[in-house]
C-alpha cells in the first residue's frame, strides 16, 4: 500500500442554525455542576487516510458532495503532517 497521509475533515453547523444536540449537551454539562459554559455546538470529525494521489480538489469535492450538507453545515479540511 502506498504511504498514507491522515486528513481530518471538521464538519460544523453554520451560524444561525439551531443545534438541539448542542443545547442538550450544554444542559447536561450544567447538570454536572460546571458553570461558565456559555454555548455548546456539536459537530463531527471525519478522519481519512489518503495516499499522495488524492488532491486537495478531490478532498474538497468529497466534503462538499457528501461529508457535509452545505444547507446546514460548514467544513474545514486539514492535512495532518507526518
Amino acid at each position: 500500500m502506498p504511504k498514507a497521509t491522515k486528513v481530518r475533515v471538521y464538519v460544523s453547523l453554520k451560524n444561525g442554525v439551531l443545534d438541539p444536540q448542542g443545547r442538550a449537551i450544554h444542559h447536561a454539562i450544567e447538570g454536572l455542576g460546571f458553570s461558565g459554559v456559555q454555548d455548546v455546538r456539536a459537530g463531527r470529525l471525519i478522519e481519512l487516510e489518503v495516499d499522495d494521489s488524492v488532491t486537495d480538489a478531490a478532498l474538497d469535492e468529497m466534503a462538499a458532495r457528501l461529508l457535509a450538507n452545505q444547507v446546514i453545515e460548514n467544513y474545514r479540511i486539514e492535512r495532518v503532517a507526518g
Binding site: V17, L18, P20, Q21, A24, N69, V71, I72
Partner: peptide, 17 residues
Amino acid sequence: LTEAGLLPGALMRNAGI
C-alpha cells in the same frame, strides 16, 4: 429527497431532542 437535492432545505434533529 433533501439530501439528493431534489427538495430544498434539510431535516435536523427534533428541537425537543
